[in-house]
């Protein structure tokens, strides 16, 4: 019998190891799996490579993971956002590595990773600094740059509802990177606002099919990053 439900976020992230590559869903606070990130801070894994569009804000969630010295390298498209000070400060002092990737290339590299495609050509970034040193090739008279797939050891994502088998639906623009991240990790760990019986989600509406999901934690009233930032919260 398939059993993916874990009792706690702590149990679900217990085996994330030092040096792991971790995909973390969310675009700003929308879709950020903040309870899973906080559990990862408690768990203590270090030297992580983290993939996220941003670098968190304030001193909670992803920003706190970075601030607590757990992240050696960020792969992201936009490391500066409102209330984002932790990463820019470490970067300016040469204390953290950054691989800057155009947002669509980032999404496509993860999608390719999950689909077994090792690399692909794209027009994005041709003629810019971000294409320097990369293979270029012409197709139909236009120049394209070779980009490699991204895969990871773990994905931490958030969804609105997960059923017992691991089928997922998301909430509005909180969906963002999570469906592609779920496909590209060895182990995909989900925090769900609601955990429901198999059959309660409409099969035509399922966004992430169960095959991509390994572990589920029910978090019925998740923290909102912006509330914590507004309150000046710090984790731990």
């Amino acid at each position: 019998m398939i059993h993916k439900l874990y009792d706690s976020a702590a149990a679900a992230v217990a085996d994330i190891f030092d040096g792991a590559t971790v995909l973390i869903g969310g675009f700003g606070e929308a879709g950020s799996p903040i309870e899973l990130i906080h559990a990862l801070i408690d768990q203590g894994a270090r030297e992580l490579t983290v993939v996220n569009n941003n670098t968190g804000s304030g001193h909670v969630g992803l920003a706190a993971l970075i601030e607590n010295g757990r992240v050696a390298k960020m792969i992201c498209s936009f490391p500066r956002t409102a209330n984002s000070t932790v990463f820019p400060d470490l970067y300016s002092r040469n204390k953290i590595e950054l691989e800057l990737v155009p947002q669509g290339t980032l999404a496509e590299r993860i999608r390719a990773g999950g689909a077994g495609i090792p690399a692909f050509f794209t027009a994005t970034s041709v003629g810019t600094q971000l294409a320097e040193g990369k293979e270029l090739r012409q197709f139909n008279g236009r120049e394209y740059v070779l980009e490699h797939a991204l895969t990871a050891d773990f994905a931490l994502i958030k969804c609105r509802s997960a059923d017992r088998l691991g089928n997922l639906v998301y909430n509005k623009t909180a969906r963002n990177f999570s469906p592609v991240m779920a496909t590209a990790a060895q182990t995909t760990i989900v925090q769900a606002d609601k955990y429901v019986a198999a059959g309660e989600l409409e099969p035509e509406s399922i966004v992430t099919p169960a095959i991509y999901v390994d572990r589920i934690v029910a978090v019925s009233t998740p923290l909102q990053e912006s509330d914590l930032v507004a309150a000046g919260a710090q984790y731990p």
Binding site: S77, F78, P79, R80, F87, P88, Y91, S92, L98, L100, V101, P102, Q103, G104, T105, T124, S125, T128, L130
Partner: peptide, 10 residues
């Protein structure tokens, strides 16, 4: 300064 590109190049 940390560079940030977002979706502009896409």
């Amino acid at each position: 300064a940390a560079p940030a590109v977002g979706g502009a190049m896409d």
